[in-house]
Measured scan of single mutants.
Amino acid sequence: NQASVVANQLIPINTALTLVMMRSEVVTPVGIPAEDIPRLVSMQVSRAVPLGTTLMPDMVKGYA
């Protein structure tokens, strides 16, 4: 089972991601792979992401 990136806190719209905002977790459906966490740092979210939400490619500007 592949771990995905999950929000560790509420991430407001247009916030630049930092390591403390993200954790890896095995979830369904699968989201952005956990190994991409270093690449996500400083990228902005395109919408508010609630705590515990799996990050999907369309939620991060410039990821897809």
Rank of each mutant, 00 (worst) to 15 (best):
P29R: 03
M59A: 12
L40D: 00
G62A: 10
L17K: 00
V45A: 13
T18N: 05
P50R: 07
E25A: 15
V30R: 03
T15L: 05
P57E: 13
P50H: 14
P38F: 15
L10I: 14
T18L: 07
L19G: 08
S46A: 14
N14E: 11
L10T: 13
L17N: 01
R47E: 15
L19T: 13
R47C: 04
T28P: 02
L17D: 02
V27H: 03
D58E: 09
L17T: 00
Q2T: 12
G52C: 09
A16D: 05
V20R: 08
M43V: 05
S24W: 07
R47D: 10
P12G: 07
P50V: 05
V60S: 01
N1H: 11
G52I: 02
A48R: 09
S46E: 15
E25L: 04
A34D: 11
T54D: 00
M56D: 05
L19V: 09
N14Y: 10
V5K: 00
V5P: 01
E35I: 09
V20G: 14
D36I: 08
V49H: 02
R23M: 07
M59K: 02
V6S: 02
L40W: 02
Q9L: 09
A7C: 04
I13Q: 11
I11N: 01
S42K: 08
P57G: 11
L51N: 14
T18A: 06
A64K: 15
Y63P: 04
T54P: 06
P33M: 12
L51H: 15
Q44W: 06
L40N: 00
R39G: 12
V27S: 05
V30W: 06
P12Q: 11
L55F: 12
L17M: 13
P57K: 05
P50Y: 10
I11V: 06
P38G: 11
V49E: 02
I11L: 14
Q2C: 09
E35H: 12
R47F: 05
N1Y: 15
V45Q: 01
S42I: 03
A3R: 05
M43W: 08
P57H: 13
A3C: 09
N1R: 03
S46I: 15
A64T: 13
M21F: 04
L10M: 12
T28Q: 09
P29C: 04
P29N: 06
M22D: 02
E35K: 08
T28A: 14
T54K: 05
Q9E: 11
I13C: 05
P12C: 06
R47Y: 10
Q9W: 07
P12S: 09
Q2I: 13
A48V: 13
A3Q: 13
M43P: 01
P33R: 10
G31S: 03
A7N: 01
A64C: 15
D58Q: 11
D58T: 12
I32F: 03
N8R: 09
V26Q: 14
Q2H: 09
R23S: 12
P50M: 14
R23G: 09
A48H: 11
V60H: 01
S24D: 14
V60A: 01
L17C: 02
M21L: 07
N8T: 15
G52S: 08
I37S: 05
L17P: 02
S46V: 14
S46Q: 14
Q9I: 15
A64S: 14
V30M: 14
P12I: 06
T18M: 06
K61S: 14
S46W: 08
Q9M: 13
G52V: 02
I32S: 00
S46M: 12
G31E: 01
L55D: 01
S4A: 03
K61I: 09
S4F: 03
I37L: 12
M56G: 04
V60G: 01
I37C: 04
A64N: 12
S42C: 14
Y63M: 07
T15Y: 07
M56V: 07
S24G: 09
A3I: 09
M59F: 08
M56Y: 12
D36K: 08
P12A: 11
A16W: 07
V41Q: 05
L17I: 14
V41L: 08
A34P: 08
A3E: 15
L10R: 07
P33V: 13
I11F: 02
P38K: 12
A48I: 08
N1Q: 15
A3F: 09
T18G: 05
L10P: 13
V27W: 03
V41S: 03
V49Y: 02
E25F: 04
P50W: 05
E35S: 11
V26A: 13
P50L: 13
L55H: 00
D36P: 01
D36H: 14
A48E: 14
